[in-house]
Nucleic acid binder design. Structure first.
Length: 429
RNA sequence: GGAGAGGUGGCCGAGCGGCUGAAGGCCCCGCUCUCGAAAAGCGGUAUCCUGGCUAAAACCGGGAUCGUGGGUUCGAAUCCCACCCUCUCCGCCA
């Protein structure tokens, strides 16, 4: 959420930023509701002031044994009037809030202006894409041939877009999760957390998924609870409503969770394989930072995520999302895209964002500076470190061999009981 | 699921119709003392909204906030109702 005062005083700035994002905002409605809100509020406050003063008089008179009946009667009317006005006020407040909750974050000055993903800018490319003497197979064909992925049975169990890992495939997924968590906790200074996978409406609103993107979420029937679409939601909300110590910042958390997404509107996209599933695993990185260092924290967050790909020996590129491609809550986002040989493209495997105070304002996460009065909103950041299913897909495609086996990256072998290669040997059925 | 107890400031904790934005303590920040520190003493220390002043603050005025939302009342942290959460006991259970 943007700061209501900032919006009111910088309508043109907000309008321009929204235009850069490719949206249009009905800020005239905001102006009108906010003006109405202030007007009614000042009238209410004047009446309440009167009531407070006279009520005190009444107390004094009653104590002195005097008759205060006329004042009581007058204040009864004032109170009724206040009640009426309060109804007006809540209408205005709801209108302002609704508009404000629907406004996306303002892009940071360093974000390139652009219409869509074609205008994203390349930051760098790392690692060499493997060369094949044969036509590289798609990861779903490799996985099915090895007997470690079974999409048909997954569809029987649940439906389309659910994964079933078997044998070494299941172990590979688990190995990656442990590998990533170990690096982030032991080498990058993140604290491991294991949060709830189901969250309430407030948490979803705090990080920005609600109220606007309910269609992307799985909701529990009979409950006002939702399956997490990313660990960002439960982990960022760890400190919801808190005032943090300046000395405690930056706070860094890493968490593995399954992620559940309805993928509404993506029919026909990435229908095969592990790329776009309703359920997938992800190791997430979340930071709470002081405002002045949050962009430095974004750079290290990105570097922390990149480390995983580098250790696995996967080629990747980093791009900066342009204004038109930026997510709702983000002020700046880097995507890391891993090389996928079968399709010959780089595919998103991590997304690292600084939300500045946008989520902190919604979730009410503040901090106090030593020796200073008052509190300030923290900056929140997060990034995938990494999407595990897509990492499996990348490993299968990048390290496939002519004989159909897949070489396991060396860094991962300790987590695979020393296994060096995925073969069809253990295929059971 | 049944019975009971409770949710108050950064933290602990008193208050149970008006003198309470809230005692007391802790933390934190100034000052005194000290070569310095500790201890002790003195003072200060919630958040949000709104108006004035301002380049912006500081500052000043007003309002709101004692789990959340309603209600009673001239007046509610205090009384009533609903909901949420926590704890204890019983039942059930991985």
């Amino acid at each position: 959420m943007l700061d209501i005062k900032f919006v009111a005083q910088n309508l043109d700035v907000v309008r321009a930023a929204l235009a850069d994002r490719g949206g249009k905002a009905d800020l005239s409605a905001f102006e009108k509701s906010d003006a109405g809100r202030r007007e009614v509020l000042s009238e209410i406050e004047a009446l309440r002031h009167q009531r407070n003063v006279v009520s005190e008089e009444i107390a004094r008179m009653k104590k002195a044994g005097e008759n205060a009946e006329d004042k009581v009667l007058r204040m009864r009317e004032v109170s009724n009037r206040v009640k009426e006005l309060e109804k007006d006020l809540s209408v205005h407040e709801a209108a302002v809030r609704e508009i404000l909750m629907g406004l996306p974050n303002l892009p940071h000055a360093s974000v390139p202006v652009g219409k869509n993903e074609e205008d994203n800018t390349l930051v760098k490319r790392q690692g060499a894409a493997p060369e094949f003497a044969f036509a590289p197979a798609a990861h779903w064909d490799i996985g099915e041939a090895l007997g470690i992925l079974d999409f048909d049975r997954a569809a029987r169990i649940t439906g389309a877009r659910f994964p079933l890992y078997l044998g070494a495939g299941a172990r590979l997924e688990r190995a990656l999760i442990n590998f990533m968590l170990d690096i982030h906790t032991c080498e990058h200074g993140y604290k491991e957390v294991l949060p709830p996978f189901i969250v309430n409406r407030q948490s979803m609103t705090g990080t920005g998924q609600l109220p606007k993107f309910a269609a992307d979420l799985f909701k529990l029937e009979g409950w006002d609870y939702f399956l997490v679409p990313t660990a960002e939601v439960p982990v960022t909300n760890i400190h919801q409503g808190e005032v943090l110590d300046e000395a405690a910042l930056p706070i860094r958390y890493t968490a593995h969770t399954p992620c559940f997404r309805s993928e509404a509107g993506s029919y026909g996209k990435d229908t095969r394989g592990l790329i776009r599933q309703h359920q997938f695993n992800k190791v997430e990185l979340v930071k709470f930072s002081a405002p002045e260092t949050s962009y430095d924290e974004l750079e290290t967050l990105l570097a922390n995520a990149e480390t995983i790909l580098a250790r696995l020996g996967l080629a990747y590129q980093v791009i900066t999302l342009c204004t038109g491609d930026l997510g709702f809550s983000a002020a700046k986002t880097y995507d890391i895209e891993v090389w996928m040989p079968a399709q010959g493209v780089y595919r998103e495997i991590s997304s690292c964002s600084n939300f500045e105070d946008f989520q902190a304002r919604r979730a009410d996460i503040r901090f106090k500076r030593k020796g200073k009065k008052g509190t300030e909103l923290v900056h929140t950041l997060n990034g995938s470190g990494l999407a595990v299913g897509r990492t499996v897909a990348a490993i299968l495609e990048n390290f496939q061999q002519a004989d159909g086996t897949v070489v396991i990256p060396e860094a991962l072998r300790p987590y695979m009981g020393g296994m060096e290669r995925l073969t069809a040997a253990e295929r059971a059925s």
